[in-house]
Design a protein around this nucleic acid. Structure first.
Lengths: 345, 345
DNA sequence: TTTAGCACTCATCGAAGGAGAGTGCTAACA
DNA sequence: TGTTAGCACTCTCCTTCGATGAGTGCTAAA
């Protein structure tokens, strides 16, 4: 059996209706709502075919049909026409992504909030991958006696500060020397390399120059910690899930939210199958919890270098064209801005 | 009518049972579960009295009784005996509060996570009030050409860094001079004062020395922003609410979570009626959303100076003695640590 | 090939009724 | 006079049972 134009029209009608109503739809209702020029009986026959093809299914015998995962997949791949965002929406996104904020957490938080507001879905935003990151400079600033502020600048533009205990009073000159040792060893090196190889070397160097600093443990621990790839992931608009009729029972909500609480898992949701835009529908998702959800995600990059990803999560019955348009435009806007804005993050 | 010992025993039995089961309890069940040495009929008479006193109530005629807000209040004030935390719990709390972390966000996040884990309730933790804070030092570090890293150290120990655009290349000496101007004006001044008075003065000073720096707007904007009292509030274990039988209908959950999404309102939940430990039961709460919740909160301080607050939120039917013991011990432990740990935050 | 007609299925809703837990009242008891 | 047993009554909860209605598949006619 083959898909023909009439089958396609009916499938599209079913999906478009279901996206709005979340109710199974029957042949009679389709004939009434959509002007297809054929009678319910004909539609019934076609629907029977569509069911054999696996594109729609019946929750139970006497209910209407709903799209299956395969149906959505067919819709997304072959039926759906892309939409253009409204000017205002574009303007808001461009405006928001153009902001230059040095605190990476804030950028992520803002982005995810905006994304969930625009789509009415749940958004997931991941920050830059640290593994591709390298050390820039390290500075020391005086603080309380016996303590110093260590400022670590990474080459993707992230700046961190840590307060470190140095055990006894040190002169600015000593701190200066310490900084130059660290900088000499670490500048331009990847976090991974520093973690795996250079830390020992630095430790040896520092113990050799024992007069320089007594207690370097804490400082090295801070550097080590800074190398860890605890990638930031941010979730926005999780509450939107509560509004979806498919999540009206508490146990589903619990499962979902429990999942959301683990950053590590969340990150995996965003892991792209390939560069660019990814669409994961229902059962395609690796996590069983999201077998009735779909994820639209995309990566943002700077000069071909993937930095992070953003995505939206909603019921399989989401408005795909809108979600895709927004995620797509947003990553583009972010990437352009990063390219323009001088390699920040 | 007066409370006598027998009434007190019965009230305590009702509350203790309800805290565990969340089910109304009847005279027969009380007689069976608790060894009070009196018959169901007698208990019935006493319960009737307790109802007249407003300490318990009936959901409907043929159900058992449940404690009223006033009943809980009486329990907390007069009946409940304080408990001692287990050694392990104390150890965990002390260990966690002893950690010295320079990122204030992390401290708050950790604390709130721990608190919700220990109590199985939802926790709210607020960071130090910025209004009581004063500027310490400001440093500039070189960054990309035309940009600099501005490190702001506040006297409560918070360190912030910001990347500022300075429009054209400046030498380290120029940055040094700039820093000394800012430090001279701002060191030791409260954020409020800087915001209200000193910023203009600094601006005037900078324009007078126009050769020093061309575009100081962004820098000043950053300082202004740093003065804003956007107090951090953190919520932990909101999911625990989902496990409470009183929140099994979705509309309540929605209301609650919608409330949680607004930091501003959340902060108000913690606002203490007085110093020390605060207990707000059910309808005593200013927010209608929390009329079937109770809040146990306490402030942590350094040298008599209140810095912030922590609290737990749960159904009115919470384990008060446990929650109180934990919140109390935790604030004490935090305060002691702050005092010992050299005025960090 | 399309359509009208018809018998059939099944979820949903409301009414009816039994079970169970709990109460208040009365009268007897210590 | 306080305590207790007995009993009628109340009200929620659960189950059962039709009625309703939306939807289907099949058959036969157009």
């Amino acid at each position: 059996m083959q898909m023909d134009e009439r089958k396609r029209r009916i499938l599209r009608a079913i999906i478009q209706d279901y996206i709005v109503t979340a109710e199974p739809i029957g042949s009679r209702t389709i004939a009434r709502k959509f002007d297809l020029g054929i009678s319910p009986a004909t539609i019934r026959n076609e629907m029977s075919d569509l069911e054999v093809l696996g594109l729609i299914e019946q929750p139970h015998t006497s209910a209407g049909r709903i799209p299956s995962d395969a149906g959505y997949r067919y819709y997304v791949d072959c039926l759906m026409e892309g939409i253009e965002l409204a000017k205002e929406e574009k303007a808001i996104i461009e405006q928001e992504t153009a902001k230059r904020i040095s605190e990476i957490q804030q950028v992520i938080a803002h982005t995810s909030k905006l994304l969930s507001q625009l789509t009415s879905l749940t958004s997931i935003v991941s920050g830059p991958l640290k593994e591709k990151n390298t050390f820039g400079q390290i500075h020391f600033l005086p603080y309380q006696p016996g303590e110093a502020i260590m400022v670590i600048v990474k080459e993707n533009g992230v700046v961190e500060n840590h307060i470190v205990d140095i055990g006894h009073e040190v002169s600015p000159e000593e701190l200066q020397r310490l900084a130059s040792i660290l900088n000499e060893k670490m500048r331009g090196q990847s976090l991974k390399k520093v973690k795996k190889e250079l830390l020992h070397e630095i430790y040896r160097e520092l113990t050799r120059q024992r007069h320089l600093i007594d207690e370097s443990q804490e400082m090295l621990a801070v550097i080590l910690d800074s190398c860890e790839e605890k990638e930031q992931v941010y979730l926005g608009g999780a509450l939107n899930m509560l509004n979806q009729p498919e999540f009206k029972d508490l146990s589903k909500i619990k499962k979902l939210f429990r999942f959301f609480e683990e950053d590590q898992s969340l990150k995996k949701l965003l892991q792209p199958a390939h560069e660019g835009l990814n669409i994961t529908i229902g059962g395609e998702n690796i996590f069983e919890e999201f077998h009735d959800c779909s994820v639209i995600s995309a990566t943002y990059r700077i000069d071909e270098d993937t930095l992070g990803a953003i995505g939206v999560l909603g019921p399989t019955r989401m408005n795909y064209s809108k979600a895709i348009a927004i995620v797509d435009f947003m990553t583009q806007s972010m990437s352009e801005n990063l390219a323009r804005g001088r390699k920040r993050y």
